[in-house]
Deep mutational scan, measured.
Amino acid sequence: MAAGGDHGSPDSYRSPLASRYASPEMCFVFSDRYKFRTWRQLWLWLAEAEQTLGLPITDEQIQEMKSNLENIDFKMAAEEEKRLRHDVMAHVHTFGHCCPKAAGIIHLGATSCYVGDNTDLIILRNALDLLLPKLARVISRLADFAKERASLPTLGFTHFQPAQLTTVGKRCCLWIQDLCMDLQNLKRVRDDLRFRGVKGTTGTQASFLQLFEGDDHKVEQLDKMVTEKAGFKRAFIITGQTYTRKVDIEVLSVLASLGASVHKICTDIRLLANLKEMEEPFEKQQIGSSAMPYKRNPMRSERCCSLARHLMTLVMDPLQTASVQWFERTLDDSANRRICLAEAFLTADTILNTLQNISEGLVVYPKVIERRIRQELPFMATENIIMAMVKAGGSRQDCHEKIRVLSQQAASVVKQEGGDNDLIERIQVDAYFSPIHSQLDHLLDPSSFTGRASQQVQRFLEEEVYPLLKPYESVMKVKAELCL
């Protein structure tokens, strides 16, 4: 049975990233139509530049190519590739079939990587351009969430054990800070992308030097003109047959890092959902379990974690691919890159769409948070109580021993009897502590235990987050809708 299948058929496997999760716009960027249309555009740009620099290419040939950029006979191309065992030459023939007058000058002087690699770089750039505003929107939604809850005390956790208090907004800023680093890295790697350009079979530009009869300047002009037509500021000066596969490492490393950030955020949300302090959106008709109707599973956060793990592992592909590119190139890269580049971007696209949807509907339960604080705060307040007693004339050592005994009794009630923490009640009825009984409410005010959390939130948002989001103001209103 021949390899390949009808990918629109229910009898043929289709990647869930495309069929179930990723956005239509990201799927289109990695589609065959987008790819092969870009090949034709690159052939047109090459012909236009070659004509401008004096090669015998007519206006009629150029116009014929322009008129057929979208006229792609995919069936013919597939048949040609089956016959020739070469995808680029299959599309040269297919393009030439609908451009008979231009057929002889299509791909003039070029090698397969002229269309293959340059198209990949265009796709990487455009895919990054799709991700950047999506990530900015996630940051914006979380920034709104953090600002609104900047002063809401909550129990902090280290080692997932109760620690000092923080605020809900401050905790959210930990998430935002990681995503801001990801946004900066995505922008950097996007701006650092260079075009492969017009380089020939081993990167020496020998074929173009021959076409222009040894004119170095025209060869350099050709490279520059096509690079500018493709919208790049610069091209690699040095290439082998391909652009260095280190570029793929750079791009997928940034995406993998984004995956790590999203995994951490969504894990926190899942843990908070278990504590009943916070939940992701839950639709009115949504079913959490087929057997347990009360369940409210954090399905979206779980999906993000599941896909983020996949995204983090994909960076190993370009690392290994770059390491086995012998001399000017081997074909070890080809099949692998067809999979890992598309999957990385479709996965990143999915987790950003999902995280935006989550961040637009996060639900906080202040009463649950308050109750958990009441359970733990008495123990945390013991040092403040000791200091207040010393100020009232008591002995630190005597007070410490009193607190120690009462704390152990209260802990026994919590752990052995399943009761509430009654340390404060014990202190309130103990005559030894009568000098500070009137101060206990103040000493137990949760806001006095959150330090500068709310001020940190305000400063972080104003100095770091809002300036970073400013270039994306025009796209901030787009909502994230999930079908599944």
Rank of each mutant, 00 (worst) to 15 (best):
A2I: 11
A3P: 05
G5F: 12
H7A: 11
D11P: 15
S15E: 11
P16G: 12
A18L: 15
S19M: 06
R20I: 04
A22W: 08
M26R: 02
M26P: 02
C27L: 13
R33K: 13
R33V: 14
K35F: 06
R40T: 03
L42G: 00
L42D: 00
E48F: 02
E48M: 09
E50I: 05
Q51W: 04
L53K: 01
L55V: 11
P56Y: 12
P56W: 07
T58M: 12
Q61H: 12
Q63P: 05
E64G: 10
M65S: 04
K66I: 08
S67D: 11
I72V: 10
I72A: 08
F74R: 13
M76F: 09
A77S: 14
E81P: 04
E81C: 00
R83T: 12
D87K: 00
D87I: 00
M89W: 01
A90T: 15
H91G: 11
H91A: 15
T94G: 11
F95V: 08
F95E: 01
F95Y: 12
G96H: 00
A102F: 05
A102L: 07
G104K: 15
T111Q: 01
T111F: 00
V115Q: 05
G116L: 07
D120R: 05
D120S: 06
L121C: 13
I122M: 08
I123W: 03
R125G: 08
N126K: 12
A127W: 00
L128V: 12
L130Y: 09
P133D: 10
L135E: 07
A136E: 10
A136C: 14
V138R: 02
S140E: 15
S140T: 15
D144C: 15
F145V: 08
K147C: 10
K147W: 12
A150H: 14
P153T: 06
T154Y: 04
L155C: 03
F157H: 10
F157W: 09
P162A: 06
L165Q: 04
T166D: 00
T167H: 05
V168S: 05
W175R: 01
I176N: 06
D178C: 07
C180P: 01
D182E: 03
Q184I: 10
Q184M: 13
N185V: 06
L186C: 14
R188H: 13
R190W: 09
D191R: 08
D192N: 10
L193C: 11
R196T: 02
G197I: 01
K199L: 02
T204N: 11
T204R: 00
A206D: 02
G214Q: 12
D215E: 13
D215Y: 10
D216W: 11
D216G: 15
K218W: 10
Q221K: 13
K224N: 09
M225H: 12
T227D: 02
E228G: 09
E228H: 11
A230D: 01
F232M: 11
F232D: 00
K233D: 09
F236E: 05
I237W: 07
T239C: 11
G240V: 02
T244M: 05
K246P: 03
K246Y: 03
V247I: 12
D248G: 02
D248V: 02
D248R: 04
L252T: 14
S253K: 04
L255W: 03
K264F: 04
I265G: 05
T267I: 14
T267E: 04
D268S: 11
D268V: 02
I269N: 02
L272H: 05
L275W: 14
E277N: 02
M278Y: 07
E280M: 00
E280Y: 04
P281I: 08
K284S: 11
Q285C: 13
P293A: 15
P293S: 07
Y294C: 01
K295L: 01
N297T: 02
S301D: 08
S306R: 02
L307S: 10
L307V: 15
H310Q: 07
H310V: 10
M312R: 04
D317W: 02
L319Q: 03
L319Y: 10
Q320T: 12
S323P: 03
W326Y: 11
F327M: 13
F327A: 14
F327D: 02
R329P: 00
T330A: 13
L331F: 00
L331R: 01
D332V: 01
R337I: 03
A342V: 15
A344R: 04
A344M: 07
F345E: 02
F345L: 13
T347K: 04
T347S: 14
A348Q: 03
A348P: 03
T350F: 05
I351T: 14
I351W: 02
L352E: 05
L352R: 03
L352W: 03
E360S: 11
G361E: 15
V363E: 05
V364A: 06
R371M: 03
R374H: 07
R374I: 02
Q375C: 06
E376C: 04
A381T: 07
A381D: 08
E383D: 04
E383S: 02
E383M: 03
I385M: 08
M389C: 09
M389A: 05
V390F: 03
V390Q: 11
K391F: 00
K391M: 07
A392K: 15
G393T: 07
Q397A: 08
C399S: 14
H400L: 05
E401G: 12
V405K: 14
S407T: 08
S407P: 00
Q408V: 09
Q409V: 10
K415F: 04
Q416I: 11
N421G: 06
D422C: 10
L423W: 04
L423N: 04
L423D: 04
I424P: 11
R426D: 10
R426A: 10
R426N: 09
Q428S: 15
V429D: 13
A431T: 15
F433M: 08
S434V: 09
S438P: 13
D441R: 10
D441P: 11
D441Y: 08
L443T: 04
S448V: 14
F449N: 04
F449G: 03
A453Q: 00
V457A: 08
V457W: 01
Q458E: 13
R459Y: 10
F460K: 00
P467L: 11
P467W: 08
P467E: 10
K470E: 14
P471I: 15
V475I: 11
K477M: 13
K479Q: 15
L482A: 14
